[in-house]
Design a protein around this nucleic acid. Sequence first.
DNA 1: ATTTCTGCAAATGCTTTGCATTGCA
DNA 2: TGCAATGCAAAGCATTTGCAGAAAT
Lengths: 144, 144
Amino acid sequence: MQAIEEMLREKRIKVTPQRMAVYAVLRETRRHPNVEMIYQKLKPSYPAMSLATVYKTVDILNKVGLIQELNVGEGGLRYDATIEPHPHVYCEKCGQVNDVENFSMEEFQNDSLIEQMEHQTGYELSSVQLYFYGKCPDCIKSAI
Amino acid sequence: MQAIEEMLREKRIKVTPQRMAVYAVLRETRRHPNVEMIYQKLKPSYPAMSLATVYKTVDILNKVGLIQELNVGEGGLRYDATIEPHPHVYCEKCGQVNDVENFSMEEFQNDSLIEQMEHQTGYELSSVQLYFYGKCPDCIKSAI
DNA sequence: ATTTCTGCAAATGCTTTGCATTGCA
DNA sequence: TGCAATGCAAAGCATTTGCAGAAAT
């Protein structure tokens, strides 16, 4: 895995401790945190960091294509350092967002789904999102 | 198509002019309007209708299952009187949301995709959303 | 030396809430 | 008549903005 500093430099954006920290949080977790979660995670080690900076940082990281924005419908966005398209599951009980691993719908992984859709709709498409909604195994068990 | 009044009555919610009007707007259009759009559309014929009522109404119509909520990631929800699962395309230029008609991924139409995912993830799933993002034919033409 | 970013506080704007009034059943 | 819905205005909150100081190139 490439060094974070290098990746920012390649995107021609200034390399700051805040940006490296935010991106590091996203690379380390599989939880798809939202801005508030990222902020809480960083607060102990970066007491001066402001929420506004986290907002600005995820925005620019998303724009340069280092991370992707997810919208599972809570109101508020989540962020994911994995930029390859992959489906997500949202637990309506606990609010956790997870990746769907080893997704077997091949068309979703490569570009054939997008190409097929461009044909069918006449749009120029740039991305796809597939979201599943339900209850996660933990929440089923605890019968909350 | 069933009468709107009847449909509300079947869902055991009080039948009011405002609710019929909001639902009628959603059934007549394919534009997946948000709250503000619904409000603007109704204003001429219902000058007294308040935005808060539109918010409350779409919320209850969604809860009783008469409409579905879409979240294309603008911030703000859109509403759709077609409750069968079907993919949507979002134009990042003009912001229009359209249905994908005659979607050929059969698994998406019936329940097999959800069942397969339940197996794979251990979740109890209730719904799926598939969104495409890009530029619509009109926006491509006008090269905006 | 310049340009860009950060952090604070204030502003914004969508959505929700409380409550008196109205209207459906 | 009783309970629920409406409409208004106020409150709430997440997000954005403006700007002076700080930091990166």
